[in-house]
Amino acid sequence: MTKIDIIQDVYEKLGFSKKDSARIVESVFDIMKDSLTRGEKIKVSGFGNFLVKEKKSRRGRNPQTGTEIEITARKVLTFKSSQVLRKALNG
């Protein structure tokens, strides 16, 4: 499934033109991305939570050469699925 399938779904089920469907679907993902970029979490009940986590810098190793390198501090996006979704997948 890609954006095109979602746009098609919105077009068929909600009565928007193709053009409007495409713009609106894009808009939903833009809002989510903007919010996450600001470091806010997004909670979608019944689906899951998107959360930005701060990772501290740590020592790592290049697995190919064995050389020690420093992995810098960073922010990463994680997804925690909701109970409801996990139940749906295992039902």
Partner: peptide
């Protein structure tokens, strides 16, 4: 045995989130 959803962040958003 179980099935779990897994999310992999896209390159563009990964970089944006990291600032």
């Amino acid at each position: 045995p179980k099935k779990l959803p897994f999310f992999k962040v896209g390159k563009e958003l990964k970089e944006r989130v990291d600032g």
